[in-house]
Design a protein around this nucleic acid. Structure first.
Lengths: 231, 231
DNA sequence: AATGGCATACTAGTATGCAAGTTGCCGCGA
DNA sequence: TCGCGGCAACTTGCATACTAGTATGCCATT
């Protein structure tokens, strides 16, 4: 063992057991299948997935770091309540960073970038039906990621994915109303228009308006599901 | 036992062994005691600290998540090289968030807040001698944390502590020149002045100037220690 | 001498047993 | 019926044994 790790991937590749358990639990918490306050134990989860406690333990630890679980030594592990303060902080951080990146994107966008965004918008319009909710969600994320890439700051979106986690928990609490998808795509269109026009001020305003829409929905859901939350 | 923040997650009350190993390793990597590319193994670290592999393993995982270590399965664990792109991204994120928070701080600061900042500045001036470097560093952090608190966004600083980690690794590579401490305190003074004057625009500009100073130093160090870095 | 293959010594991933601590139930007594 | 004490059954934290995969150096072969 001399030096050079020679690892092509920046994020480590771990055993499949850990990833399987981690992904399953994360999805279960995010979708609300396991509800805030509910207790889960390393032993039970290990038995359920047919693995030992060790990979389960690491998955727990990671999920606790992300704010999904709360580990209380010698007592148990519980699904963390959604903290309203964390939601508010997530919104603040997201708005601050995304308004800055979209401004940069508007300054730097080239023809190929605009074309890429337009393709994403077309794909997005194609999956607006309620039964393709997960595809719609993925394309929503992809659009924001693409804007960060165009801005020359793809890592900013990586950070936001982690920060957004608490927001996504809220989002999953409720399916959205009829015109929701159309409204989102329309706002994305406005952003892309301003980016294509190389208009940083307009792009920033369009992004701000878009995020305020999303945040308003989050607040609405929070009010109608207050039992899941903690002050 | 003073420098590293380690205030990552508020819900972390795990065993003392894990914390001991984690703090020691984090400090060793940050200070350069263990250099980028160097390999460490769970077994050796466990033996050295007189604990089993389990807490070492959790500490490794956490440090890998923070970007300090790179775990390559079946091969080994290595101190991650400092990625210049990560440093740049950290700077971008820090500037974006801190300029926004200091603006808010200037809008919201009350007399008590200004007094608190002034106290921090006085303390800071008292530890400007080179032999009190760790105290100086701690008060630097405390000032920025206080600004975030005044802005009503203390969690933003918690995030920045994690994001800043790569910057701090660079900072530790080199002790600073003669007038460095005075320059930092002077810039902090300018920021506090603008906050006290309830001048958001001025506060933001002062913060931007301050961060540009810090970033320039980081870039300088990066150039003169290129062997620690990775493109 | 150069090279290819294999044995060995390492690594992290996983499984499991033990220890320490908390919770809550259950029975006993007033 | 109500209150209290103690035990039992759980929990996670830690230690250790085992598995599987990789790098490396030695040795035989060419």
């Amino acid at each position: 063992m001399t030096d050079s790790p020679t690892s092509s991937t920046p994020t480590d590749i771990r055993g499949p057991r850990l990833h399987g358990v981690y992904d399953a639990l994360r999805a279960a918490v995010l979708s609300g299948e396991i509800r805030p306050g509910e207790g889960i134990s390393e032993t039970r989860v290990a038995a359920r997935y047919g693995v030992s406690r060790t990979p389960v333990r690491e998955a727990f630890r990671r999920l606790a770091d992300e704010g999904f679980l709360r580990i209380v030594p010698q007592v148990g592990t519980f699904v963390a309540p959604i903290q309203l303060s964390a939601v508010s902080d997530s919104q603040f951080i997201r708005e601050t960073l995304e308004c800055r990146t979209v401004r940069l994107a508007a300054e730097r966008a080239e023809a190929a970038d605009v074309a890429s965004l337009t393709r994403l918008l077309d794909s997005h319009r194609a999956v607006m039906s309620p039964d393709r909710h997960s595809e719609f969600f993925a394309l929503d994320e992809a659009t924001h990621a693409e804007l960060a890439r165009i801005a020359g700051r793809p890592a900013v979106w990586d950070l936001l994915v982690a920060v957004k986690a608490q927001l996504d928990r809220v989002r999953f609490l409720s399916l959205h109303s009829e015109g929701w998808a159309a409204k989102i795509v329309g706002e994305h269109q406005s952003i892309v228009d301003r980016v294509a026009a190389r208009d940083p001020d307009g792009a920033e305003e369009a992004m701000r308006a878009h995020l305020r829409t999303v945040f308003a929905a989050v607040d609405e859901i929070a009010r109608t599901n207050s039992h899941f939350f903690e002050t």
